[in-house]
């Protein structure tokens, strides 16, 4: 596949990423989406997970929480409620969140279940992304 994709990741307070890349993987709410240049126009909601983009055979990652993405043949725009690069992630805080959420999930009632699940998912994603950044 020739050509490149322009990927833009913005949150409500800042622009996190703006690059020309070869491939993007998005954490869609229904599962991972691999996007190559020339993709059919698509609007999708995003869940919690890793966003991967490949440029010059190097893969980079961002931790994403909720939002949506607009995919055009030559452009991907991600509006996320939270987007963090590996070097921005506070590993200790994420580990603490993970422990707290795991402990809470054992005893939690139905009302809090979703919130705790989301907290756990975000913590795990953050740790994963942070490890990839340093590894």
């Amino acid at each position: 596949m020739d050509g490149t994709l322009r990927i833009e990741v913005v949150t409500q307070t800042r622009k996190v990423l703006d690059e020309e890349v070869a491939e993007v993987q998005l954490p869609g709410s229904l599962g991972m989406l691999g996007i190559l240049p020339g993709h059919t126009p698509l609007l999708t909601t995003l869940g919690i997970g890793e966003l991967m983009y490949r440029k010059d055979h190097r893969e980079s990652y961002l931790a994403i929480r909720w939002g949506f993405a607009e995919v055009l043949p030559d452009r991907v725009t991600v509006l996320a409620s939270l987007a963090e690069a590996p070097e921005e992630i506070d590993v200790e805080a994420a580990e603490r969140d993970q422990r707290e959420a795991e402990a809470a999930l054992a005893t939690v009632d139905a009302a809090d279940l979703e919130r705790m699940r989301a907290k756990l998912e975000l913590a795990i994603t953050r740790l994963q992304v942070a490890r990839r950044g340093t590894g």
Partner: peptide, 12 residues
């Protein structure tokens, strides 16, 4: 642009 919608337009 005629988008595909995922999961669907109403959810979006």
């Amino acid at each position: 642009v005629d988008y595909l919608y995922e999961p669907d337009a109403a959810t979006l």
